[in-house]
Design a protein around this nucleic acid. Structure first.
Lengths: 159, 159
DNA sequence: CCGTATCCATTCCGATACTG
DNA sequence: CAGTATCGGAATGGATACGG
């Protein structure tokens, strides 16, 4: 986002990451991108933020190599925004935030949850973290798998 | 952090999480807490932020149940800040950010990295995610383990 | 429909000074 | 050392209006 003056922030990978996606909107935009959202208007409607802010965040994410501008899939003359591999690398972070939110914030006692990467048309990357209510992760709680899905199956996932 | 007016943010666990730790300092403070930092001055020195901001973040984290005020271990009359279980639940998020930063931001070609939870005196919680340079995670890349360490062994970990 | 430009309110942050 | 109080500047975000 903004360049921080000095301090030891630059030496810390966590700080460097936060420097890029640590604002209040970027990770939400990325989350939507994982959910298959690709158009300006879709982002805006789903997130409910102003157009100027969205445009600025989108540009920053593109300039940081997290999103990429692509020609629209359908005929429309407008471009779309898709995750790069670098952007997909944030899958864990988003999943972690989601898990934590479900486990510790107004939880409705969900058993576990699944987050699906729908940003790629061909395969779907799934990560399950079966944690809930203050339970720390154990090896048996982690499931990572890749599954192939048929075209056009894009169900809505909650959260 | 701040209460967002309406939109669908509240319905999304990711958004709820970001509402609490989505500012520029909280996750850095939490990261330090995982590294065993417990005192006001230590946080301030390591992070290089102003005292007023640190105090405000610390209070917010305590009031959100992520940190907890504890009596100082040594004799000093001052209190310390320790992670709660809820706070420890953010381990993944911090690890994910760290991994991503190492893999995609000014990477020096590190093979993989290990992040260690040193916030608890008794056991150390370790999560390895062997991802690097645009490689998405596969099941074999995830290692979660708990190891016991002897007292006082608190090595400095980079980042 | 997809943005950009401008304006304004709010928030955030650092510096400083002060208390115990 | 561990905070609190205050202040001013910078950054952020929303609303609106405008153009491709």
């Amino acid at each position: 986002m903004k360049k921080r003056q000095k301090s030891r922030r630059e030496e810390c990978p966590v700080a460097r990451s936060l420097e890029v996606v640590g604002d209040r909107w970027s990770l939400l935009i990325i989350r939507n991108a994982f959910d298959g959202i690709r158009r300006f208007g879709e982002f805006q409607k789903d997130l409910g933020l102003s157009k100027s802010v969205l445009a600025s965040r989108l540009h920053a994410l593109v300039s940081n190599g997290i999103l990429r501008v692509e020609p629209s899939a359908d005929g429309s003359a407008y471009q779309e925004y898709g995750l790069t591999e670098k952007g997909r690398g944030l899958f864990h972070v988003v999943v972690g935030l989601r898990q934590w939110g479900e486990a510790f914030l107004f939880s409705q006692n969900e058993e576990h949850s699944v987050m699906v990467d729908r940003s790629s048309q061909e395969s779907v990357h799934t990560l399950e973290l079966r944690s809930q209510h203050g339970k720390l992760l154990t090896p048996n709680d982690v499931v990572v798998k890749k599954v192939r899905v048929r075209e056009g199956s894009r169900s809505k996932i909650p959260g």
